[in-house]
Amino acid sequence: MTTNKTGRITGTEMEEAISRFERDCRSDGVGETVRSFIREPLFIWMDALAQASDESVSHSEGEFHAECGLDRNMIMRTTVGINRMLSIRDVFLISAIVDERYADRDFLMSFAERPKLSRNAQRLEQLLSDSFRDPLARPDMKRCDQAINMLFDIIDMIPKTYRAQPFAVISYIMWWMGQEGAMASAISALAIDDQCSLAAIVCSAVERRIGPAWTSET
C-alpha cells in the first residue's frame, strides 16, 4: 500500500488499509493481525496518556502533541482497528478512563485480540462496572483530556465516513467526566452511523440524567 507522508488520509487509503487488515485476518489469524496492527499505536497512545497524567511533567501546548501524538500511519492503523473491531475500540476507551495500574497493556492487548475469552470479557465488564458504580472512581481529567485531544486529532485526519467510532469514544469519555459536550459528540457519531450503539447509549444516559457514581447523578 502506498501512503502519502503528509496531508489528510484519503478514502482510498482507508479502503486499502481495511482490505489489508481483513486479508491478514484471513491468512494470519485475527489475533496475530490485531497485534501487528494495534500494538504500536496503542502503546504510543498509552504513553501519551501516562505523560499527560504525570503532574511532575510540564507540558507546553503543541509541543506535547508533536512529541507524543500518533503519526499519520499510526492514525490510519488505529482508525482501521476501531472501525473493524469493537474490542479494539473498547481498549482505547478503557485505557483513557481506567488507570494503567488496573488495566495494563498486556490485558488490553489480550482483550483486543480475544474479547470473547471468558476471563477477558469478565475483567472488562468489571472495570466498566467499577468505574460506573464506585463513587471514589473519579476521572483523571488530564488523562481524559489527552485522550479526547488525540481522538479529535484522529478525526481531523480521516474521512468523515470513518469518524463515528472516534466521536462515540469521545462522547463516552466526556460523559464519564461529566462534561456537557458528551451529547453533541454522540449526536455527531449517530449522524454518521445511526447504528453506533456506544453513541446511542451515551445519548440515552444523558437524556435520562444517568451518570457515573462520582457525579452523584445516578
Rank of each mutant, 00 (worst) to 15 (best):
E207M: 11
R26A: 09
K160L: 09
C203K: 13
R35L: 13
E113K: 09
F64G: 01
M157A: 10
E113D: 11
N4E: 08
I192E: 00
N83H: 01
D99L: 05
T2D: 08
L151G: 02
L198E: 01
L117V: 02
I94Q: 05
Y172N: 07
G211P: 06
E32A: 08
M150D: 03
C203F: 04
V169D: 00
G62C: 09
H65A: 02
F43Q: 14
R143A: 03
V34C: 14
A184Q: 08
V91G: 01
A121Y: 11
V98I: 15
M85F: 11
M177H: 03
A182K: 07
I192Q: 02
R105Q: 05
T3H: 04
S95R: 03
I192C: 04
C203I: 12
R77Q: 11
F43D: 12
T215L: 09
L198Q: 13
M74N: 07
E125Q: 14
L190H: 03
S87L: 01
G29V: 12
R89G: 09
S204P: 01
I97N: 08
M183R: 09
I155W: 05
K160Q: 02
A168M: 15
D153V: 05
S60T: 03
Y162A: 00
M14N: 01
S60V: 14
I94T: 10
N4Y: 13
A50Y: 09
P115H: 11
V80Q: 02
H59A: 12
I158R: 02
Q179V: 10
M174E: 13
I75T: 07
E125K: 15
D140G: 08
A184T: 14
D194R: 10
E22G: 01
T218M: 13
A52T: 10
A191M: 13
A200T: 15
I187E: 06
D153H: 12
E125S: 11
T215M: 08
E67Q: 15
N149L: 01
E113M: 11
T161A: 08
D140L: 03
C144K: 03
V34K: 04
M85T: 07
G181V: 12
I201N: 13
A168R: 02
R26I: 05
N149P: 06
A205F: 07
S53M: 02
F132I: 14
P159W: 02
A213D: 02
T218Q: 13
R119D: 04
Q195D: 15
I38G: 05
V91I: 10
W214A: 04
A191L: 09
F21W: 04
D106M: 13
S204A: 12
E61C: 14
F64P: 10
F111G: 00
A66N: 15
M177F: 09
I173N: 02
H59Q: 06
G69H: 02
M46T: 13
L93P: 08
P115V: 10
L108K: 05
Y162W: 10
N120E: 10
T78I: 07
F132C: 09
S131G: 00
D104A: 11
G178N: 12
R163Y: 00
F43W: 07
P159R: 08
V169Q: 05
P135G: 03
L136P: 05
C196T: 09
S110R: 15
A164I: 12
A191P: 01
L198Y: 05
A66C: 11
V98R: 04
N83S: 07
Q51F: 15
A205E: 15
G31S: 11
E207T: 13
A96H: 06
T10M: 06
A66M: 11
L151H: 10
W176G: 00
G81H: 00
L49M: 07
G29L: 05
